[in-house]
Amino acid sequence: MSGNGNAAATAEENSPKMRVIRVGTRKSQLARIQTDSVVATLKASYPGLQFEIIAMSTTGDKILDTALSKIGEKSLFTKELEHALEKNEVDLVVHSLKDLPTVLPPGFTIGAICKRENPHDAVVFHPKFVGKTLETLPEKSVVGTSSLRRAAQLQRKFPHLEFRSIRGNLNTRLRKLDEQQEFSAIILATAGLQRMGWHNRVGQILHPEECMYAVGQGALGVEVRAKDQDILDLVGVLHDPETLLRCIAERAFLRHLEGGCSVPVAVHTAMKDGQLYLTGGVWSLDGSDSIQETMQATIHVPAQHEDGPEDDPQLVGITARNIPRGPQLAAQNLGISLANLLLSKGAKNILDVARQLNDAH
Rank of each mutant, 00 (worst) to 15 (best):
D61T: 02
E179G: 08
Q275E: 05
H126S: 14
L134T: 05
E179Y: 11
S147V: 03
S69Y: 09
A191H: 01
I350K: 00
F253G: 04
N340L: 07
Q50V: 02
L193V: 05
F129C: 07
R149T: 02
D121R: 02
L137D: 03
R251M: 10
G107N: 07
R149I: 03
V353T: 15
N322V: 11
N200L: 05
E117Y: 11
L334Q: 01
A347R: 15
L193M: 14
L97A: 10
M295F: 07
T136V: 10
S262T: 00
A214R: 00
L343A: 08
R149A: 02
G144P: 02
I71L: 12
D65W: 08
G281H: 05
V143G: 04
L206C: 10
K74W: 02
P324Q: 09
N333S: 00
I186S: 06
G131W: 12
D178G: 13
D121Y: 03
D228I: 02
R321D: 05
L276Y: 13
I71G: 09
S75T: 15
Y46P: 00
G111V: 04
G131N: 09
P302Y: 08
I350L: 03
L351V: 11
I205V: 12
L64H: 15
I231C: 03
V39S: 08
S57N: 01
E182V: 15
V123E: 01
N169G: 05
N88A: 10
K157Q: 10
H95S: 05
A297K: 01
M196P: 01
G236L: 05
S57C: 10
Q328L: 09
K157C: 11
V222T: 02
F125L: 12
M212I: 14
M212Y: 02
S37A: 14
E210D: 09
I110V: 11
A320S: 02
K98A: 04
S288T: 09
D307G: 14
D286V: 11
P119E: 06
L220R: 03
G192E: 03
T109C: 14
H83V: 10
V224R: 04
A191D: 02
V353P: 07
S141G: 11
Y213S: 04
A330D: 09
G287Y: 06
G144F: 00
L154N: 05
V224A: 06
V124N: 04
H120S: 12
K348C: 01
N349E: 10
D91K: 12
L64Q: 08
S96L: 01
L64F: 09
E73S: 12
S57D: 15
G48E: 13
P127M: 03
R251S: 05
Q194P: 09
V316M: 01
L97G: 01
E242Q: 10
K176V: 11
G131Q: 14
G287I: 05
R195W: 05
I350T: 00
Q50R: 11
W283S: 13
P208L: 10
K348V: 00
Q155S: 13
G259S: 11
E82Y: 03
P159R: 10
I231N: 07
H256K: 06
L148W: 06
K43F: 06
A191F: 04
K74M: 03
R173Y: 01
D233G: 07
S337R: 14
T145C: 05
T41S: 13
P119W: 10
Q292N: 11
D61G: 03
L278P: 08
E162N: 05
R255W: 12
K87T: 12
N340E: 00
F77K: 00
P47I: 04
A270E: 14
P106Q: 11
H268V: 14
Q180W: 06
T66F: 09
R167E: 01
F158K: 06
T145F: 10
K128I: 12
Q180K: 12
E258S: 07
P309Q: 10
D228T: 03
V143H: 03
S262E: 15
Q217T: 02
E250F: 01
L170Y: 15
P208I: 13
G197W: 05
E258Y: 13
A84E: 07
D178R: 04
G48L: 13
Q153L: 07
A67L: 09
F129E: 15
V93S: 03
E82R: 08
G203P: 01
E135A: 13
G48Q: 14
P313G: 10
K98H: 02
L254K: 03
G197R: 10
I231S: 10
E210P: 02
G197C: 14
R175K: 13
G218T: 01
Q181G: 11
Q275W: 03
Q155A: 14
I248R: 05
L137G: 03
A303V: 06
R173M: 01
S344P: 14
L343V: 15
T136I: 14
H126T: 08
L76K: 14
S75D: 06
G274A: 15
A226N: 04
T58L: 05
K115Y: 06
D240C: 13
A360Q: 02
G72I: 13
A270R: 10
G317Q: 01
N200F: 15
N171W: 14
L343C: 07
D65I: 08
G221I: 13
G280F: 02
N349V: 10
V93G: 07
A249R: 02
R116D: 04
P106T: 13
I248H: 00
G308S: 10
K157H: 13
T78G: 11
L85R: 02
A40W: 10
A226W: 15
I323H: 07
P309N: 15
L234N: 14
I299L: 08
D91S: 09
T190Y: 07
P159D: 07
S165H: 11
V215A: 09
A320D: 09
T279L: 06
E86R: 13
T279E: 07
E310Q: 15
G218I: 01
W283K: 01
A122W: 00
A67F: 00
W198I: 07
S147D: 06
V93Y: 03
L134S: 02
T78M: 04
A320L: 09
A191G: 06
T78I: 14
K98S: 02
K87L: 11
R116M: 03
V103D: 09
L170C: 08
L206Q: 03
P327T: 03
E242M: 05
Q328M: 15
T136G: 10
G72H: 09
N200A: 12
Q50M: 15
K62V: 14
G260D: 15
Y46G: 06
P159S: 10
F51M: 09
K43R: 10
P264M: 00
H126D: 09
S75R: 11
F77G: 02
A320G: 14
V222I: 15
V267Q: 01
L134C: 08
R225I: 04
I54N: 07
I113A: 10
V265N: 01
H305R: 04
H83T: 13
L64W: 15
N333I: 15
I350N: 05
K87A: 12
F129T: 09
T59S: 14
K128W: 11
V282G: 07
T136H: 13
V38C: 09
L254I: 01
R325W: 13
Q180Y: 11
V38H: 03
G60N: 09
V222H: 00
P47L: 06
G197M: 02
S290W: 15
Q332F: 05
T59W: 04
D99V: 02
L232S: 05
Y46M: 13
A55R: 09
M271A: 03
K176E: 08
V142Y: 11
H305E: 15
E179H: 08
V124C: 08
L97N: 04
G144Q: 00
H199R: 12
I205S: 06
F108M: 02
K79R: 11
H256R: 12
L342P: 02
K128Y: 09
S290R: 06
Q153S: 08
L278T: 06
E242P: 13
T294C: 02
R164M: 11
A44P: 06
K272C: 06
C211K: 00
E73L: 06
L238N: 00
P324F: 03
L234K: 12
I318E: 04
S165W: 05
F108N: 08
K140A: 12
T298A: 08
Y213P: 08
Q275L: 01
D228E: 15
V301F: 11
K128T: 15
G280L: 04
V215D: 02
L100N: 01
K176A: 08
Y277G: 03
T59L: 07
R195F: 04
Q356I: 02
L104M: 14
K74I: 07
I323N: 09
G131H: 13
V143N: 03
T145S: 10
E258C: 15
P138C: 10
K43P: 03
H199S: 14
V130Q: 11
A226R: 08
V38A: 08
D289R: 09
H268S: 04
V282Q: 05
A270K: 15
Q356N: 15
Q304R: 13
F108C: 10
I336M: 04
D230E: 11
Q50C: 00
L174A: 06
E73H: 15
